[in-house]
Simulated assay, not measured.
Amino acid sequence: MPHTSTDRADVRDMLVVHEAFRQSYARLPGLVMEVSPGDVERAVVVAEHAQLIEEFLHLHHKGEDELLWPKLLERAGDRLGDVVSLLESQHEEIAALLVETAQRLALWRAQPAKDSGERLADALERLGSLLTEHLGIEEKDVLPIVPEYVTAKEWHELGDHAINALPKSKLPTIFGMLASYADPDVVKLMLSTAPLVPRLIMPVLGPKAYARHARKVYGAAA
């Protein structure tokens, strides 16, 4: 049965995370193809950016697999039908593509060449296409009913799962990236369960860290 507490999950932060993934993977193939053959220094910049996004995506899906799907299947399985099974199978497909892109990324990073760059860009495009489809299904068929079955506390546990698993040195950049797609009230929502000091400094530190990162990765297009 749906829970009746007024303390329900606010899924707007998930929409921000989704948009960050969409935009990142839309731009990654082009970033790879723009690297001149033999330009190892630039390849390292692009590769480290790709690895950051891939790490965050892996942790995001791991959190859903462990903390969200089981709750929804138990509490709302009759409403979701086969949607969760489809999303779980897509997680497996995306995980396989993440392995492929990581392998191709390592080869290209060490010795950027036209052919290895094209193969990497193709793998990233396939990953981005499947991810876009996957996120669309979540937003259409799952997120609208989440507040009926998941409490705010449970929802924040899901978000904290990925953030807490990231290296602390990467947190400002990730937060700044997410904040760049979020309204101010959603930024507050994302920080609502953080300790006092991060809650106070991250709105200043995060955007600055991401601005530096974006200029380095995207240049004038940042």
Rank of each mutant, 00 (worst) to 15 (best):
A96Y: 09
L97H: 12
A220W: 10
I53R: 07
I53K: 03
I174W: 10
G159Q: 14
M33K: 13
L68P: 04
H18A: 13
E92H: 12
F175M: 15
P112H: 06
E157W: 06
D122N: 07
S180R: 08
K62G: 13
R75T: 10
D78Y: 01
Y210Q: 02
R79I: 02
M190K: 11
E55K: 12
Y218W: 14
A95G: 13
L131N: 05
K153V: 13
M202N: 03
R104I: 02
L166C: 02
M190H: 08
L143I: 07
S24G: 11
V16I: 14
V32D: 08
A76C: 14
A26F: 12
L73Y: 02
V45D: 01
K168E: 14
F175N: 03
A220N: 11
G30H: 04
D160I: 12
V146R: 02
G81W: 09
R42A: 05
H18D: 11
V16R: 01
E92T: 14
Y149A: 09
V11H: 00
L98T: 10
D78Q: 13
A220F: 07
V40R: 15
R27I: 01
A123E: 05
T173G: 00
P198I: 04
H49V: 01
F56H: 12
L127P: 03
A26W: 10
H60C: 05
S129C: 07
L15P: 00
F56C: 06
V186S: 05
D13Y: 02
E148T: 00
A194T: 06
A179M: 15
L105C: 12
D7N: 12
A165I: 02
P184G: 05
L131K: 06
